[in-house]
Every structure is written in C-alpha cells, then in structure tokens.
Design a protein around this nucleic acid. Structure first.
Lengths: 252, 252
DNA sequence: TGACTTTTCTGACGTTTCGTCAATAATTAA
DNA sequence: TTAATTATTGACGAAACGTCAGAAAAGTCA
C-alpha cells in the first residue's frame, strides 16, 4: 500500500516536472519551442518515458490549460463568497480575474493555442471535458451572480437577453482584453496606457449600461477593490510581487 | 511593357490561387492542414515555385490575415461615412463588423494563429507592418468617431480614460466575442442562443454605460441597422446569403 | 533561325521533430 | 533465486519544412 503510494508519488512528481518545464518552454518560445526531445533531455529521461505520461505534445498544452483553468475557478469561487450585493460580488470576480491575468499571463497564450482546432482535436476526450467543465463551472458561477441580481431587483435584463448573454459579454471583454494586452506589446502606440485599468472601467460601465444597481457612480470602486484584495486575496497579492521577480528563474 | 504586365499578372494570379487554396486548407484542417507539399501538388507546381512566392508557411497565413484586415478596414471606412451623429456612425461600424464576421469567419482563426509569437516571429517585417498598419488605421478610425462625439458634447469620458481606451473595449468585446462564437460551437450549452445578437446588445449597452448620447433607448436600433444595411452594404448583404451556399465549394 | 543569356521551375535532398516499438533493464512475486 | 511483470530506452520510420544544383523555358540579338 505504502509502496504503491510511493510509486504514485514519483509518477506525479515527474508529471509535475514535465509540466513545469513545458510551461517554461512555451513561455519562452511558444508553440514551436515546446519540444518533446528537449523535455526528455532536460529532465534526463528518454522520450518514451515522456510519452508514457502524455500521448502527444498537445496533451501537455491542454494539461497546462486545465490546471490554470481549475486554479481560476478556485479564485472565482473565493471571490464569489465575498459578502455584498451581487454587483459587489461581481467586482470581487473582477479583482480575481485581474489577479489571475497578472499572475499567469502565459495562460492566455496557452488558451489561445488550444482553441485552435488543429491542436484541440489531438487532445484526449477526457482532458477536453476536464477543460470544458472547468470553464463551464466558471461561467455558471458568474451566471448565478447575475441571476441573484435579477431576483434581487438590482438588475433587469432587456427582452431576448439572458443572464448568460451578459456573462458572455463580460467574459469576451475581459478575456479578449487580456489576450490583446498580453500578445500585443504595442498597445501603447495605440493610446492604451494601462489595459488593466481600462478593463476595470469598461466592465463597470458595461454593467452600468444594463442599469445594474448599485451603479458604479454609487460606490467607491477603488476602496472596495482594496478591501477585496485584503480580505480575500491577501496571500495571492503578496505573492504576486515576488513572482515577477522570480519569473525568469529556470527549472533545472 | 505589356510583356512585363502579362508576367506580373500571371504571378499575381498564381499568388491568388496559392492564397485561395491555403485559405481552404486552413479553414478545413487548421494550422496543421496548411501544408506546403499539398499546396504545390494541388496547384500542380513544384514546392520550389511556391517557396518563390512565400518564404515560409507562416508568411502565407500572414498574407491571408493582411488581406482580410484590409478588407475590414475598407468596410469600416464605408460605414464611417454613414450620415448621422457619431454614435450612429458607430452603429454602422457595428453592422460592418458583424457583416465581416459572418462573411469571413475564418479570419478570426487566422488572426488567432498569427498572434501566437512562434508564428508571428517568422513573418517578414514588411508584412508584419502591413498588418499592424491596417489594424492601427482601423482603430484610429474608431477613435476618430469617439473624438467627434466628445467634441460634440454627445459623450464625456471619465478621468484617466481616453477615447482609445473605449475603442480598446469595443474591440476586445467584439473580437473576443466573435472568436469565442466561432471557435466554440458549444456556446449554446452555455445559454447563449445567438452570440451575434448578444454582441449587438452588449456593445450598445457598453456605450450606454458611458452615457454616450443618444442612448440606445432613444433610437430604434433595428430600424437604423436595417437602413445601414440597405444604404451602405446592400451588395455585401445580398452576397452573404449566396456565400453560405457556396462556402463548401472546392477550389480546383 | 540559332546560339547564347537570363529567368524560372523542379524535385531530390538534408534536417527537424513527431510518435512508435522491439529490446533491455528494473521491479515484483513466487 | 528465478520467473513474470512492469517500466524505460533510444533507434527507427514517417511527415513536413525549407534549400539548391541543375533542368527547362523565356528572352535577346546577330
């Protein structure tokens, strides 16, 4: 029993090492940099052993994406537990999303890759489902908050427009914005000084556009964001500053 | 002279054939389906000849993206010429964007690919610039409309928030939304029945959130959209229905 | 027209990387 | 200790990229 556990532990550790190294490669050199031979060489295992863990390189990419998606879900769940009216809960989600984007900018790159059909199709069904489930739960969480607001009387949606449509909008705006911000270093040429700040304002104004009470003019956003950061994400926030310092540390 | 022109014409024609076939491959089988040997075989030229036109496959992808980006710019320019207050002009842009997304869904896939650093880095500088210029001009066009609205008194932006930030938001929302809609066939499971309709509502409400006059409640959107389609894009709209019928026609 | 030059085209070739699998080594069970 | 099972290895075949020396075609000029 304990034998078996030891073996399992070794396997898991190796898998984690593979993923960590793969993440490093992707971050540094993108899709083409993710190379099975190099992973094998770097971890001092043969290629066959790596292929024992993951049947193809796309599977590694997907595994990276799943782990980050799960992490994001966890952050969102904690944010949703923040006390307050639904719109304030949604603010907490916004703080979580921004924190996530800052902490794992590479996730948006990975996600962009696995959304390409030619990559996605090679991923095993179980992992495809793992990813989709995680994403779905995330969006359902948000939809739940919107529904609360509707039930509350804080929000009334136009006809032919569901809570899920609003979530779709918030999701498109933020993920679209973060991807642009990360993949487009020349956003500044364009006049966008601080995309993260812009996205904060934009999501708020989008909610205002639906008259979601309380309107952004009726509460002090920076103050609440501050409180959310301290109450819910103090650990993550303090880690964040050290991450940027250690981001270029190598694995081996 | 006329000799030379004929030759140039032949070259251009062949280039167009390469691009058309490449587009077909990308559409059908994604990045991995785009295969230089297959292009050569299908067009009955040798690989070397194909490489005479494009130094690598990434260059082909970029060329596809540039041509579509230019086309979009043209549509947007025509939309911007629609008579009316800035917010109505912006509506016209919205109609153009939706038309574009419907006509060339593959563009969002191509764009997603070339935004990946490992692909983008292989593209020649001149083509990189061609793409960025086209995109920049597009966004400047939109920013111009926002500036008009500000000059007009129709719109007042919050402090620390530029016209470009608003354009960034509209752009993120629409391109993020269209990409999601195209790459995620299971949006319906999520409760989003008609993403195009949702995006129309969402962009309008985003503008409302900034109190951009006239508010969406103050004008009849479907009617104006109808008028824009007829006045500005009657050709494109009528073609669109036939496109969906001929979309699966093969090239050769 | 025919000989020579320039341009264009060709496809075999070298290279990289993927993913496989028979052979080998390590571990477990008897 | 030996047999059976499991894990690991790296040589190998396949696919695709991109190159380049030589063949073919087009152009030039006496």
């Amino acid at each position: 029993m304990s034998e078996k556990t030891r073996k399992e532990r070794e396997l898991e550790e190796r898998e984690a090492k593979i993923l960590a190294y793969a993440r490093k490669l992707v971050l540094a050199e993108g899709y083409h940099g993710l190379n099975m031979d190099r992973i094998a060489e770097a971890l001092e295992y043969s290629k066959g052993t790596i292929y024992n863990h993951f049947p193809c390189k796309e599977e590694i990419l997907a595994a990276l994406a799943v782990s980050k998606a799960d992490h994001r879900l966890m952050l969102f769940q904690r944010a949703a537990a923040f006390e307050g009216r639904p719109r304030i809960k949604m603010q907490a989600i916004g703080v979580a999303a921004e924190l996530f984007a800052h902490t794992f900018p590479d996730h948006f790159i990975t996600e962009q890759m696995i959304r390409l059909s030619s990559i996605w199709e090679k991923v095993s069904l179980t992992r495809q489902q793992a990813f989709e489930t995680s994403e779905l739960r995330c969006m359902n969480l948000l939809a739940g908050i919107v529904h609360q607001a509707i039930g509350n009387g804080d929000l009334e949606l136009p006809p032919n427009f569901s809570a899920e449509d609003l979530v779709f909008g918030l999701w498109s705006l933020t993920s679209g914005g973060y991807s642009l911000a990360i993949s487009n270093p020349n956003l500044k040429n364009l006049g966008v000084e601080d995309p993260y700040h812009s996205i904060r304002v934009l999501t708020n104004r989008l909610a205002d556009g639906f008259q979601w009470e309380p309107l952004s003019s009726e509460f002090n956003f920076p103050e609440i964001a501050q409180k959310i950061q301290v109450d819910v994400f103090s650990n993550e926030v303090s880690q964040l500053s050290s991450i940027s310092a250690s981001a270029d540390q190598v694995l081996d």
